[in-house]
């Protein structure tokens, strides 16, 4: 469904991604692992075309989308949940969801406001409140719900567990597994190996913008030297 090949991205003069290539199949949940600053967020942004890669291709459903504007990528069915959350604090929860709304797609799960409120009951209680007084966990739920309003085929989740209370992280894991059952393809970036292991089928480890490992979690389990070298546990 998604194929990233030979991606090189820069931030200013810093070379962040270095010939990065990987694929994601339909219905798969893939975890991008690596330390802070390894290039996970830049990978997400390069797929979304929020960062335009200098070279390489991002192929989504057979089309090379490198160089597209972000809104075109979003309209093709890629939903992006940024690490910094970036909810619209001046808008109510309902209005935040409205911003993300797009037409339903045939080959992707369809979400409604009511369905999302059922998954995230906390949001439902405060639907007419503005985003200002929300906790980190609630903000994270709102960004995910907002992105799902676009009925994406592929969901990019950037560090969903970061800075969130453990109880909520547990809830988050269940939610992602539910998305998977609904048929959504998901790429998540994580530093928390345990969390990633629960929700994802496959792990891709990057370090300094270079791919170091691509395989199942059981394979990763068998090679603790890789884990220790590239992940901070």
């Amino acid at each position: 469904m998604l194929e990233v090949s030979g991606l090189n991205s820069f931030y200013g003069k810093a070379h962040i991604l270095n010939d990065l290539s990987f694929t994601v199949g339909r219905g798969e949940v893939v975890a991008l692992l690596g330390r802070n600053g390894a290039g996970k967020t830049t990978t997400m942004k390069s797929i979304m075309q929020l960062v335009h890669p200098k070279s390489g291709a991002v192929t989504f459903e057979g089309k090379d989308i490198a160089g597209y504007s972000a809104h075109r990528v979003a309209r093709m069915g890629i939903g992006y949940v940024p690490e910094e959350r970036r909810i619209f604090t001046d808008l109510t929860i309902l209005e935040n969801l409205e911003v993300g709304r797009q037409k339903p797609r045939e080959d992707a799960p369809v979400w409604t406001v009511d369905a999302l409120f059922e998954i995230f009951p906390n949001l439902s209680e405060r639907r007419n409140n503005r985003g200002k007084a929300m906790s980190g966990g609630e903000q994270q739920m709102l960004t995910i719900a907002r992105t799902l309003m676009g009925n994406p085929k592929l969901l990019l989740l950037d560090e969903p567990s970061e800075g969130i209370a453990p109880v909520i992280v547990e809830q988050m894991a269940k939610t992602i597994l539910r998305f998977k059952r609904e048929g959504l393809t998901v790429v998540i970036s994580e530093q928390n190996l345990h969390f990633a292991g629960i929700v994802a089928d496959r792990a891709i480890i990057i370090e300094s913008g270079v791919k170091k490992f691509d395989g199942s979690f059981s394979e990763l389990e068998k090679s603790p030297e890789i884990r220790d070298a590239y992940l901070s546990v």
């Binding site: 979304m48 929020l50 504007s69 972000a70 809104h71 979003a74 309209r75 992006y80 940024p82 970036r86 619209f88 604090t89 001046d90 808008l91 209005e95 935040n96 409205e98 911003v99 993300g100 797009q102 907002r146 992105t147 676009g150």
Partner: peptide, 18 residues
Amino acid sequence: ILVRAATQDRTMVGALGV
């Protein structure tokens, strides 16, 4: 709603398909 959202964060509005 879109106008108000864009006032706050244009890039994010774009990333949501607007």
